[in-house]
Every structure is written in structure tokens, then in C-alpha cells.
């Protein structure tokens, strides 16, 4: 059974976030109006402490197996008058308005199913497995080298392009942001977006490719030369990036100054290898 209860917030609920779990239920505040509740203490007379609080509509959702369980829960939930901090000062008071009790769930079945999402971290390998097919190796090679070349969207992320003689690979790297019919680029692009999505967390613009971690200057010519030397073998390339300390100090995007180019490349390759091993690639 899926029980939902909806109410109006009379006085602001003092919580850090508008979504939280309480009494074994999922609670969510919608149509948010954000307020700050200030409080002066005698021992800190200079400035008041400010607490974030929310106004709007509150929705409680509860999932259980039988109807009797749901009705019992409804009786206890309806008795709640206030939620959050500073209830003794009149904060967080609620007026319950309506609700619903349904047997069907959002997935369309009578049972709740696995409603909780499961997240798995991408495990970063020390080296590549040796049973890779040539098609995968091609995509991985493009994946490692794609950010080191100038494209329509950005310059080389290590400022100097590595002197690689393979012309097809160079073209692929330079065109990986453009519309092309190349199947290798199309396959690679999905993993590039996914990897960027994982690594880009906090927006912090930078003017150079050095990230906030970097404390020394990098010899980009030497870096490009070293990459070109190991570019013939995918396994050597991966190992070089895994051990590289210079790439750790560069950012993947200028708008996300805390990101790391090394981490982006490693996640990208490991996503491809994971899919290949699951035979999804």
C-alpha cells in the first residue's frame, strides 16, 4: 500500500534540506519559500545565528504491505503538529489537508518493488585486462587521447598537442565534438558525457587549466612528447595516465576548477571496460 499525506506549513520548518526521512517515512517540501530564522544568544551578542527554514506544502509518503498497517500509520501521522527544530518557539507547525491510500505504485505494479536506487562506485583498475578486442581498444585509445587535441569547442587541455603520426586517430580526436558518422566516435561520446557528469561536481571557474590543487608548473611539451611515445599501445597509455601526477593537477573543464583530467580519463576507460565485460558494449 502507498500512503501519502499532504499538508500546509503554517510556520517555517527549520531543517537543512527540504527532503528528509522521519518516522520511517519520506518527507518532501514542495512549492518552497526559503526563509532565515535568526536567534540571538546571550553569550554571543554580536551577530544572530541564522537557520535555514522552509515554507510551502509538505508531502509524506509511506510504503507498507497491508491496509491495516497503513491506517495505523495514518492515525499516528495525523497527530503530528510540528516538525523540525525550535518547535517550542512555535516553528514547524503543520495543518494536514488531504491524502491518498492506493494499492498501485509508481512502477505500475501492486507491489512496491525495488524503489530504492542502488549506486555503485566505478572501480578504477591499475591496468587494463588482456582480453580486450581490437574494436574496444580503438575506442579506448580515442578515449584516452581525445582531450589532448584541439577541437571546435576547446584547445588542447595540455596546451600542446602530442606529435602522433596516426592520421585517422588525430582526426577522430579533433572531431569528437562534431557531427560525424564515425561509429567509433558515436560509441565513445556516450562514455565521455557520463564520465564528465560524474567528475563535474562543484562549479568553480578557472582561467587556466591548472586546478585548485596545483602548486607547481608543468612542462607541457615534455608531457605531450611522453604521451606520444606510449600512444602505440593502449595498455601502456592507460598505465601512463594511471601513474601520471601532472594530469592530476589539470582540470577537465574550465568551469569546474576542482575537477581532475586524470580522474576523468580513468573513469571514462573503466566505464567502457565494465560495459565490455558485461557484454553490453
Amino acid at each position: 500500500m502507498n500512503l501519502t499525506l499532504e499538508g500546509q506549513i503554517l510556520t517555517p520548518i527549520v531543517r537543512k534540506r527540504p527532503e528528509f526521512r522521519l518516522f520511517g517515512c519520506q518527507i518532501r517540501i514542495t512549492k518552497i519559500r526559503r526563509r532565515y530564522f535568526t536567534k540571538i544568544t546571550a553569550s554571543k551578542p554580536m551577530y544572530p545565528y541564522a537557520y535555514i527554514c522552509y515554507l510551502g506544502k509538505i508531502i509524506i509518503s509511506y510504503v507498507c504491505k497491508t491496509e491495516t498497517q497503513a491506517m495505523r500509520k495514518l492515525q499516528t501521522l495525523m497527530e503530528i503538529e510540528a516538525i523540525g527544530r525550535f518547535q517550542s518557539e512555535g516553528m514547524g507547525y503543520i495543518q494536514w489537508l488531504k491524502g491518498s491510500l492506493k494499492a498501485t505504485f509508481s512502477n505500475g505494479s501492486d507491489t512496491p518493488g525495488n524503489t530504492q536506487r542502488t549506486y555503485r562506485k566505478v572501480k578504477i583498475r591499475q591496468g587494463l585486462p588482456h582480453n580486450l578486442s581490437p574494436a574496444v581498444e580503438e575506442v579506448i585509445q580515442l578515449g584516452i587521447l581525445h582531450d589532448f587535441f584541439q577541437t571546435s569547442k576547446h584547445r588542447s587541455k595540455i596546451y600542446v598537442e602530442p606529435p602522433i603520426t596516426d592520421q585517422i586517430l588525430r582526426e577522430r580526436c579533433q572531431q569528437h565534438h562534431d557531427h560525424t558518422d564515425d561509429p567509433v566516435i558515436e560509441k565513445f561520446r556516450k562514455y565521455d558525457h557520463l564520465s564528465a557528469l560524474i567528475t563535474r561536481k562543484h562549479r568553480s571557474p578557472r582561467l587556466s587549466r591548472y586546478n585548485w590543487k596545483s602548486s607547481r608548473k608543468i612542462n607541457f611539451k615534455q608531457l605531450a612528447q611522453e604521451i606520444a611515445e606510449v600512444s602505440t599501445s593502449v595498455y601502456k597509455l592507460y598505465r601512463y595516465i594511471y601513474e601520471s601526477k601532472d594530469l592530476e593537477l589539470l582540470n577537465e573543464s574550465l568551469e569546474f576548477g576542482h575537477s581532475s583530467l586524470r580522474q576523468h580519463l580513468l573513469i571514462l576507460i573503466n566505464l567502457i571496460v565494465n560495459d565490455y565485460q558485461k557484454e553490453v558494449f
Binding site: M78, L97, L101
Partner: peptide
Amino acid sequence: ERKPIFETDSGEFKI
């Protein structure tokens, strides 16, 4: 006293 009043068969109620 708070009571749920079921209006229709859809499972929706007012308090």
C-alpha cells in the same frame, strides 16, 4: 480529533 473522510473509491481522502 482528525479523521480521514474518503469521498470516492480512488483512495483519496480529506482530513
